[in-house]
Each structure stands twice: as C-alpha cells, then as structure tokens.
Amino acid sequence: MLVQKRDVGDASSGPMIKIKVSHGSYHHDITVPAHYTFGDLKRVLAHETGLQPKEQRLLFRGKEKEDMDCLDMVGVKDKSKIILLEDPASKEKKLEEMKKNQSLLKAYEAVAQVRAEVDKLSQKVVTLETMMRSGTRFADKEFVVLTELLMMQLLKLDTIEAEGEARAQRRIEVRRVQSFVDTLDNLKARNSNPFSNSNNSVSVTTKWETFESGLGSLCSPTVPLQTSTKITQEWELFD
C-alpha cells in the first residue's frame, strides 16, 4: 500500500481540508482548499497518479461528481473519502494502444530476424556469382538449395502481420528475396549453358553481315531482268 501526501495552496486562499482519495489499492492523502472544484482536484491527482483529468472519475458518497462541483458545496470536509476510478473508455484505449505497440514490436523483431538470414544467404549468392565469373562451374543442386532457403524466408515474411513502418520494412525484405531468387535463376541458366550468350551474339552479327552484304538486293533484280528479256524476244517473234 502506497500513501502519498500533497499540500496545495496556503491558508490565505481559504480553509484547507485534507481528504483521502482511494485509487484501487493506493491511497493518496491530499490537502487542498475547501473551495476547490472536483476539476481542480483532478488536476492535482494527475500529478500523483499519472492519469489525465479527462481519464478520471471521482465519486463522493457513491455518486460521480462533475468538474464544476465545489468540494465544500457538496459536503466534502476534512478527512472525507473520495474514490478515484479510471474512465473505462480511456482504460480500454490504453489497452488497445499497448496491444498495438506490442504487435508492432513483435513484427519489427520478426522482420529483423528474416533480414539477418537473408543477409547470410545473400553472401552465398555473391560468392557463387564471383566464382562463376572466374570460370568455376557448379552442380545445379547448389542453386536449387540456395533458392529453397530464400523461399523459406519469403514464407516467413508472408506470415508476419505488420502495420505502418513495420509493413514497409517487410515489403523491402520481400523485394530483396525476390531479387536474389531471380539472380540465382540467371546464374543457374548460365551455369548450364555458359556459351549461350556468345552464340546469340554471333548469330546477330551474322544476320547483320548478310543484310549489309547486299546479296538480297542483287538477287531481286535478276528475276525482272530475265522476264524483261523474254518479253522482248516474244515481241520480236510477233513482228
């Protein structure tokens, strides 16, 4: 049980009264001027309890009092007892905010754990790519296993319920995983057919050389030329 005392005002402001305010298992001994209103008392209690005035409900003799009611006018005297209750709506709102904050923190932690795993896997992807550039070839199993591990992290991200900034962080990690999976697909294709890109370039070059050689343009006039000669001969026979 916690007992706190607080003296407010002085004798020149009028007669002072000491009242006992019960708040759950806590009791507060408050000394205030008798002419104070219940609204004034709430402001004093805000410093003692941490509850804002709008979050407080004060009961005297079993009835809730309005903020404008004066202590002495409703019968509050020295050593009177007043009950302090937290407003139910305010209490429920605090509980909701607490749950939301806990959920947000949980989402942040879950995303951070996935990020750490993705960072480790990304190093393996970079290592594969670097070694392939130097001519090293790998079994397809290396790419398949690494892709499956990344997809497992993607599934973990899908199960995380997040709002606000936590959702944005989750979206970033999803894109990272997808990017690494695409990279592995490309590396696997290059590993299976390391000369596929060079073959394509030769094919394109060959087409351009054929086009620029003018062989097609030489063949086209040949047919009309023969036809023209034939027609001329037919006219000569007709004459």
Rank of each mutant, 00 (worst) to 15 (best):
E161H: 14
L155V: 11
Q102M: 14
E96I: 02
S122W: 07
D140M: 03
K100H: 14
T136H: 12
M98R: 07
I82D: 00
D158Y: 04
T159R: 08
R167V: 06
Q169P: 00
I83R: 01
T130S: 13
R137W: 03
D69H: 11
L155R: 15
A139H: 09
E92V: 01
K99F: 09
M131D: 15
E148G: 03
K120Y: 12
R171E: 15
L121N: 05
M132E: 10
K100P: 01
L150Y: 10
T159L: 12
Q153M: 06
N101W: 05
Y108D: 12
Q102F: 15
A112I: 01
Q153A: 05
Q169I: 02
A139N: 11
L146F: 07
R137C: 04
V111D: 07
K120T: 13
E117P: 02
A112N: 05
A162Y: 14
E97L: 11
R167F: 15
I160R: 02
R171C: 07
R171I: 10
A162T: 01
I172T: 14
K99L: 11
T147W: 00
E165L: 09
G75P: 04
E161A: 14
V126G: 02
K99S: 10
Q153Y: 04
D69M: 06
R115V: 06
R115Q: 14
T159Y: 02
E129L: 06
S103R: 10
K99W: 07
A112Q: 07
S90A: 13
V174R: 09
Q153E: 15
I172F: 10
A166P: 04
E165V: 07
R167H: 12
E165I: 05
V114K: 01
F138P: 06
V125D: 05
A107T: 01
